[in-house]
Design a protein around this nucleic acid. Structure first.
Lengths: 206, 206
DNA sequence: AGAAAATCGTACCCTATAGTACGGTTATGG
DNA sequence: CCATAACCGTACTATAGGGTACGATTTTCT
């Protein structure tokens, strides 16, 4: 079924990706209203008709960009939870990778775009939520449930515990970057350690 | 010095406030790029020239709106911390009021606007940060410092403790509302209780 | 009453924008 | 080699946007 790359389809897909890439940059930089189809077409080179033949309206382009961006965002998410020596170390390692990921420039810009536009386009928030925060929380929750079964931490709602850790990770550098207060990369290490410590105390990790 | 209301100045101030009010609604609803001066003028009635005589450009109107909005936001912030019977109760009461405040529709829209535009206008984030999150954190930090001195909670960096509590309060309904996942008002109570509980465990409150 | 300030209405300029139309050109597939 | 799908360039429509100009009108101060 999925044979025949075909030079036509190949070039088409390639072109589509190029459009998405340029559009993504523009939407991330300038928001929905601040992005113009004409500018995208100009930056892309070629004719406006071509752009419209791929995405028949600005809204559809936006939806496609969001879909693409959140998909690639999610794909880098699976390996955040790497069980190691003891629970504390695992939590700390997770916190460090997680904070690093959500404070990366691209993640920040995506976060900005999503929170800005999900007021006007409700489906934007939902798409994002189901692809990024929700899977992460469930990943964590499953892990914590097992740890609770093994009596390595206090028994509690695993999903709530997952949210606590996520909240602790998002309250520091990420939040400050949101307001434009810039932070040094070293902060990540410090904050991850602090978040892990608070979490360990709250959930009675040995 | 501050005498002579003067009908001229009075009407001028009144008009100014009317403009700010309409503009605020529009910026909060539609963002910076999505807001048009012409539309504001139309909704306001009267001539475009008048609008421009008050605010000589869209950017200056935006700055004034932000200034006004964050100021009124801050004024409702002082009475969040009401010392009561014991520390646990105080923390819980704070969490409840704080979550209620930051999840109010207007606060959410302001948050959205600020995080969206502080990428493009760095001073936006700074203005907001210095008027809302920072005072709140310092208020809390001062309170915790005193409680630590009185040995009612574990000794630690008071500002860090303040951030922990704030993070716990922002990680629930507020975050979900940001993605457009709506929550029931009853969640506030539950989440405040949970946040206070986690905080109490992490800081060894009796 | 009369000068001064504010306001109004409207027409205007210039640029940007989403989206369309169309005839000519290049590349691909059979 | 030739039909065809994709593409290009360009010109075009229509609307909206920020911002200006200006003469007429109303309101306030003295």
């Amino acid at each position: 079924m999925e044979k025949a790359p075909g030079k036509r389809e190949a070039r088409k897909e390639e072109r589509r990706l190029a459009i998405l890439q340029v559009a993504k940059r523009s939407f991330l930089d300038n928001g929905y209203s601040g992005t113009s189809m004409s500018a995208i077409s100009a930056e892309l080179g070629g004719s406006k008709g071509t752009l419209w033949s791929y995405f028949p309206s600005k809204e559809e382009l936006f939806a496609a960009v969001l879909d693409h961006a959140t998909t690639s965002y999610r794909q880098e998410l699976g390996d955040l939870l790497a069980p190691s020596a003891d629970l504390r170390a695992t939590v700390f390692a997770f916190a460090r990778s997680f904070i690093a990921k959500i404070t990366s420039p691209e993640a920040m810009r995506l976060h900005r775009l999503v929170s800005a536009e999900s007021g006007r386009f409700p489906e934007v928030g939902e798409i994002f939520y189901r692809r990024a925060p929700q899977p992460t929380q469930q990943l964590l929750a499953g892990f914590f449930a097992a740890q609770m079964d093994a009596a390595h931490m206090r028994r509690d709602d695993p999903l709530a515990a997952a949210r606590v850790l996520a909240s602790l990770c998002m309250g520091g550098a990420h939040q400050r970057l949101l307001w434009g207060i810039d932070t040094s990369p070293g902060d990540i290490e410090v904050e991850a350690r602090y978040a892990a410590d608070i979490f360990a105390r709250a959930f009675e990790i040995a």
